[in-house]
Design a protein around this nucleic acid. Sequence first.
DNA 1: CGCGCCGTTGATATTATTCAAGACCAGTGG
DNA 2: CCACTGGTCTTGAATAATATCAACGGCGCG
Lengths: 263, 263
Amino acid sequence: MPNRSAQQRAFAVPEQHRLPARPTLRAVARDARACPPSLSLSPSFPLRCNTETASQLEVLPTRRVRLRKGEVLVRNGDAFTGLLAIRCGSCKAVVAAAGGGQQVAAYYLAGDILGTEAIFAGFHGSTITALEDSECCELPLDRIEALAREDATFQRSLSTMLSREIGRGRKVMLMLGSMRAEQRLAAYLLDLAERYRLLGYSPRAFVLRMTREEIGSYLGLSQETVSRLFSCFHAEGLVQVQGREVTLLDASALQRRVDEPLH
Amino acid sequence: MPNRSAQQRAFAVPEQHRLPARPTLRAVARDARACPPSLSLSPSFPLRCNTETASQLEVLPTRRVRLRKGEVLVRNGDAFTGLLAIRCGSCKAVVAAAGGGQQVAAYYLAGDILGTEAIFAGFHGSTITALEDSECCELPLDRIEALAREDATFQRSLSTMLSREIGRGRKVMLMLGSMRAEQRLAAYLLDLAERYRLLGYSPRAFVLRMTREEIGSYLGLSQETVSRLFSCFHAEGLVQVQGREVTLLDASALQRRVDEPLH
DNA sequence: CGCGCCGTTGATATTATTCAAGACCAGTGG
DNA sequence: CCACTGGTCTTGAATAATATCAACGGCGCG
């Protein structure tokens, strides 16, 4: 049935490339796409817990949100009401930069927990937008913490999740602070590949969910620079690029690009 | 008694400028310098807890470390054995950058908790060095978490601490990703001022604990650029600079610098 | 007193941005 | 079906920002 308006268009759980991946992983990914009711949010980082906690978690989510591409999940300044788990899809977090500008501070894939940065302040410091049709659920912090008090494994899992977020920030700082443009883009592509791999998708071929401008904002570059770099990488045979469809032809060469000294 | 060797030199708890500050805050700062046995680590961010937890915390620290300027607290790759609390002094965290380079990823003052990023991986991803004579204590994560299971206030306090660290990372990303050199340095100085203020020190005059090179590394700039910017700010009457002694003459003008559009 | 690290400043080189123009593409309405 | 439209992407040329190279002054420490 063609000619549906955008508003009425059916909600579609996004699909990645169906390129070959190890069967077991692919099966997990299929489950992830199906968004089962449990909180085994993602194969890449399940919130580990004992069976009792798991059953409690299943009945926990108070808010279950389906977002269409471009829809806003959290607005800058919103009160913090709980952590947000992405069940499937992907989001970007945009912060207000100096002089009225904007910067993409993070992007999240299925299994990631959003809003961690807002626990401290009590309100969100960024606007979180869906980059494709996505599904999230809210986990009230009080309830989560109550469960953590009963289940040490789950408690550790939460600390680990927050720690990972801190480490990810470090990695981005490293990128922004000490890499040149081409190294940043190479690192970005490899990071994406790794995260897709953990989700059971092909790490070799994937679809960019961000525009050149958004990628540039995330990497501290202009959209033109990003575009040019894609062209360069393409010309050098490192990647195949067609719009937002990317295939990494030589991941190790990309890695070498990242590792090479400043000149 | 002059002419002591570095090894034997008396351990000196570092002192900040003794410039006017509100008496109450100054009193707190004095206490912080005295390093009392309790875990009210710092006026800027006490780990809140009930009295029972507090008494448990007092007997907790397994490792109490006194560091002299330049000494290493944690080396990149060290196994994670517990969170580290700075009682007094300051430290920098250095990560290995691409191409054999190094980057200062964070600096910590009294009251800050170090090593949070290592919970996830199980080992530290940075080398942490004292920027001045400092004192730290290690808090084994198991024990901390056991206490958190008994005391919800303390539990929340831990989450908040980790959340704050994530937010701080975001702030640095913003600096590195969307500010020009002079905006970065202005933001850095204002951040220092605010943190010193929270510790009860003068936010107007303080001593930089990092070299120009370290500041540059943290801000993603070369040492020469940092030096030039200090000269500029000085010439414009924004700050008074003499080596590492800095006085902010016009903080609001500095803030305006940070906020101004890219042009 | 001298050595070495730190900081400053100038000249030059490089990198990435900005400005500008046009191509491409998907969605929309005629 | 086709042309239109707005957003996205690409590419070139000029420009601005910052790094790099180099030389020197100063200060602290041994």
